[in-house]
Design a binder for these strands. Sequence first.
DNA 1: TCCAATGTACCGTCCAGACGGTATAGTAAA
DNA 2: TTTACTATACCGTCTGGACGGTACATTGGA
Lengths: 182, 182
Amino acid sequence: MSVTRTKIVDAAMVIVRDQGVSRLTLDEAAKRAGMSKGGVLYHFKSKDELVRGMVQRMLEQCDALLQNHYAAEPEGAYRWSRALVRMAFDPEGPPDHKIGGALLAAVTVNPDLVAPIQAAYDSWTARAVSDSPDPLRAKLVCMAMDGYYFQRLMGISLFNERQRDQMKEFVLNMIDAGKSGE
Amino acid sequence: MSVTRTKIVDAAMVIVRDQGVSRLTLDEAAKRAGMSKGGVLYHFKSKDELVRGMVQRMLEQCDALLQNHYAAEPEGAYRWSRALVRMAFDPEGPPDHKIGGALLAAVTVNPDLVAPIQAAYDSWTARAVSDSPDPLRAKLVCMAMDGYYFQRLMGISLFNERQRDQMKEFVLNMIDAGKSGE
DNA sequence: TCCAATGTACCGTCCAGACGGTATAGTAAA
DNA sequence: TTTACTATACCGTCTGGACGGTACATTGGA
């Protein structure tokens, strides 16, 4: 991915976050990226392609975060689940980072573009379940993290930093409680 | 709310569910409702108004469901939390009913229209927390329910009926586990 | 009882602007 | 000269919305 492409995708992300999905147009993205629409269309043949780029960018970042957090977690049960929670509460994760807008953009521009996200999501869930003695507990954790993402994306009921950290600890504790058979 | 208005809102909900938010136009809503765009604009002065109608409709239905489920739950701790879970898994609730599209419509058409949803959501959360010995547990439940809604709305990782019921039971059990102060 | 006035519900047409996308010319570096 | 990239001009389509008109029901006074 060239520097310019990255810059354009960044601009698109910022637009979604700051102005809402409805304002995501090729013109606006170009303006934000400091270039003309022609320039944008040189790098992305269509708006769909641009959104695809956003999605790809988001998934790459998520995967990287997940990998990092997984590596940092101690071995044992629920390791993936814990990594997932860390990613969800990471400032660089989808809920709190501009990359989160990619999903919203995909859904509104063309629902087909959600497919890669679904695939990634399924694999994350599968991983979380794979090393969990209690699959339902792992799934619940996934759902809760989605809920957190959802709230941020839709702008409903925002935690402050303190509540955020409390919730993170609570979820991690809940996971640990599942280790020794509830 | 007149019969015709209801019909139009219904049509809009169906469009969002079946064709995606991007297909929600006044023309399309009119066609689905069996009338002309002029007719739609007679009942809703603008597209924003229409979406406002969708949001109102959704909130009314949610409140009614919540009320019913609350009434049916036994007294005691976590009564509101349990009612909330029942609503989330109710076929008439936002995740599994066409009314769920209202939030998506609001976010994409005009983020300001989400305000009423945020207000309602906050009050639900507050209620759930109010009768919960462990507020964080209640909040986690809310988040998980949001996650379920989110998954359905975005079309990622769908439960089948069996998994759905399993998860419902699991969450309800988790709530009960919190009663005797873990 | 007749009829004019008023209000309600809805239709069909039209328009300005926005948007995605194309075509093409230009520029600067390698 | 080619390649990578940018800018401008333009087109067709879609969409929200304005508007004038129509059919019908209601009302209220002569």
